[in-house]
Simulated assay, not measured.
Amino acid sequence: MGRMTQIAEALEAVKPTSADVLGDSVTFSPIRWKTGWPHHLRRVPPFRDDATASITRSEVFAFAADVVESGYAREQVIDFLGACFAYVAGQSNEVMQLQSFLRNKGNAAQLLSAVRGLEGASPIDAYSSLLATGLAPKPASAVAYFLAGEQSPGDASKPVIICSKRAAVAGLSSESAWSAAEYGEYLSALKSARDAYDPSLPLDAVEWAARKFAADQA
């Protein structure tokens, strides 16, 4: 099945809206994150000591807005990374992988530095610089996505989240490190499908539809 066809099928099946995207909710374990959060960062994200909680994209965007408003202050960046990674990992094994990544002082320092350099970067450059820190593609794309701010109808060039399910719907290999060039192909595929279906949709509504479509097919 062609790349366009499957995203088009996802859009027709899911009929996404901006409200769907912002309200998308993920369940995670705050206490699991707090107990595994690296001490060397000297700050723990402001999670309560609950066994389970949920976080929406809208809430993560609010943390990202705090980062931008603070001028990329360290404390706000760390709080944002906690929220972003909680949303990305949910209750999966990615939690341990991300905690392990952050526990490496070199990785954490590189990531904090890369985040501070994102302002004004293109989606592909932002993704590429985050990937260069050793961060996996899905969380790297999520950091770029949320820091770029809430998306507006018809946005031409904003980052979106990539993962194996989303990539497969977009016609890319589902098992890949997705280079910056492949990420560019992914964005182009989503944009082409969006423009054919409804140019007034924000790009992340297409990404969200692809993810939901893939999950519903599983």
Score class of each variant (00 low, 15 high):
V14C: 08
D50G: 09
S100T: 15
V26A: 06
D216I: 02
G106L: 08
V169L: 04
A65V: 08
A83M: 05
L102Y: 04
M96I: 09
L147M: 10
S179R: 03
D216L: 15
L41F: 02
D24Y: 15
A62V: 08
R116W: 00
F146R: 12
A136C: 03
K138M: 13
S122H: 09
P139I: 10
S129F: 00
S200I: 04
K158S: 10
R194S: 07
H39P: 00
S54W: 04
S174K: 12
R103Y: 13
L11C: 04
G36R: 07
Q217W: 11
R194A: 13
I161P: 03
I55H: 12
A144M: 10
F47P: 02
D195R: 09
R57V: 04
E175F: 12
P46T: 06
A108C: 04
H39S: 14
S192W: 00
A19F: 01
V67S: 11
Q99H: 12
K212W: 09
V68Q: 13
V206D: 08
S92L: 01
G71C: 11
L81F: 08
A167E: 10
K15Y: 01
V88I: 11
S92D: 01
A205V: 05
S157I: 00
I78G: 08
L130E: 05
R74D: 15
R3A: 14
A218P: 01
V44N: 09
A126W: 02
N107D: 06
A73M: 00
F80A: 12
P123I: 09
W33E: 07
P202V: 07
D49E: 14
S122K: 06
D24Q: 14
R211T: 02
A181D: 13
S18Q: 07
L147F: 00
E119Y: 02
R42T: 03
A140N: 05
L203S: 06
T27A: 14
V21L: 13
Y186R: 07
A83K: 05
A209Q: 12
I162H: 04
D216A: 14
S18R: 15
I31C: 07
S157V: 09
E150Y: 01
Q91E: 15
A136D: 12
K158F: 06
K105R: 14
